[in-house]
């Protein structure tokens, strides 16, 4: 049939349909928002995209590398704080603290966002270098410990608001674009997410990605084959931290606020839940997970103040009956790593 020629063989038929449908929906969000006269939909959708970005970054190491980071909020938070702090100084006209010289920060996205990625990457390098000595549950807990350290650190430094956090009085600036416009902001998030998904899909299919997946399945064998497993894993960890940092920069702009809450372990837990819920080891899964969790929150919280009594059992049921996450349910088979 002609159609099947376009979409390819049956095995990946549903995958393609799901992907296409997903893309269609993502691009149609602003349209739908206008159609239903619910302009706010665009804001929620932006938030979903941003969380999808950080969930994808976690999935890269969790689903493909088998590294369960329970401290991903640290990178998200650091990325957000970079934007927050630079904007703060630029707005107040004061020199950036903890830095020599008298640089007064900036609101230019082309400085802020890459810097957020670099610093988050550096943080990931330090945390990863120490944490990757352990594995399994020990790795989960040591990454959590580092994130908690950062959380308590941010709470107690008064320069940047401590627990009160920092208001962001101006969103980042990109030439020719107005980030205050909900739709422009949405499309920037979307483009960045797609870009990231494309890069990640290239990465996981590359030799580097194969080694990473090999480590997840059998680390000892990979070591025996002579691969520098530690270095590969660390590289993936840093990459993941950088993407999370970018998501943080976007989130800071979206919320117009940064606070240590981003680094708290419950936030890291939520990110992890998005990945598992959507289906780990598939790059689309985390996007689905982010959308589902945030929409469930949104809808249930609107229905009753006791919404958690429904959300909780729903999560349990999903685990029990959708073994490969929602994505697995949709495409009807195991995910890439299944």
């Amino acid at each position: 049939m002609f159609l099947s020629k376009i979409i390819g063989s049956d095995a990946s038929f549903r995958t393609k349909i799901v992907t296409l449908l997903g893309l269609l929906i993502l691009f149609a969000v602003p349209l739908l928002a206008n159609l239903f006269n619910e302009p706010f939909l665009v804001d929620i959708a932006s938030r979903i995209l941003i969380y999808a970005l950080v969930a994808v970054s976690l999935d890269l190491i969790l689903g493909y590398g088998g590294m369960v980071s329970f401290g991903h909020g640290a990178f998200l938070g650091l990325g957000a704080y970079v934007v927050g702090i630079l904007t703060h100084h630029s707005y107040e006209g004061t020199a950036v603290a903890f830095l020599p010289g008298d640089w007064q920060g900036t609101t230019q996205a082309f400085v802020q966002w890459p810097l957020a990625m670099i610093l988050s990457g550096l943080l990931a390098l330090i945390i990863g270098a120490l944490s990757l000595r352990t594995s399994g549950v020990y790795f989960i807990m040591i990454t959590l410990a580092f994130a908690q350290m950062l959380y308590f650190f941010m709470i107690s430094i008064p320069t940047y608001g401590g627990e009160d956090g920092l208001n962001i009085w101006e969103r980042s600036e990109i030439p020719l674009l107005d980030l205050y416009d909900a739709k422009s902001f949405y499309f920037i998030c979307l483009v960045l997410l797609l870009l990231c998904l494309w890069c990640c899909s290239r990465i996981v299919k590359s030799r580097f990605g194969m080694v990473l997946r090999g480590c997840r399945q059998n680390e000892v064998r990979m070591k025996a084959l002579g691969y520098p497993v530690y270095r590969y894993k660390l590289m993936a960890f840093v990459l993941s931290g950088m993407i999370a940092g970018l998501a943080g920069a976007l989130l800071a702009n979206h919320t117009e606020f940064v606070g240590p809450g981003l680094m708290h372990w419950t936030r890291s837990g939520e990110i992890m839940i998005m990945v598992i819920l959507g289906g780990m080891g598939s790059l689309i899964g985390p996007v689905l997970g982010s959308a589902t969790l945030l929409m469930m929150e949104e809808v249930l919280a609107g229905l009753t103040e006791h919404w958690m009594i429904f959300l909780g059992p729903m999560l349990v049921l999903i685990v029990l009956f959708a073994r490969k996450g929602l994505y697995g349910l949709l495409i009807g088979k195991g995910t890439d790593n299944g």
Binding site: L31, L35, K183, I188
Partner: peptide, 23 residues
């Protein structure tokens, strides 16, 4: 960003056309 700039007006136009029907 290029993609975005083309898309935005297109989608906006489409949306407006569609929503014109709704009072």
């Amino acid at each position: 960003m290029k993609k975005n700039k083309h898309l935005l007006p297109m989608l906006m136009a489409g949306a407006m056309a569609l929503s014109a029907g709704f009072a």
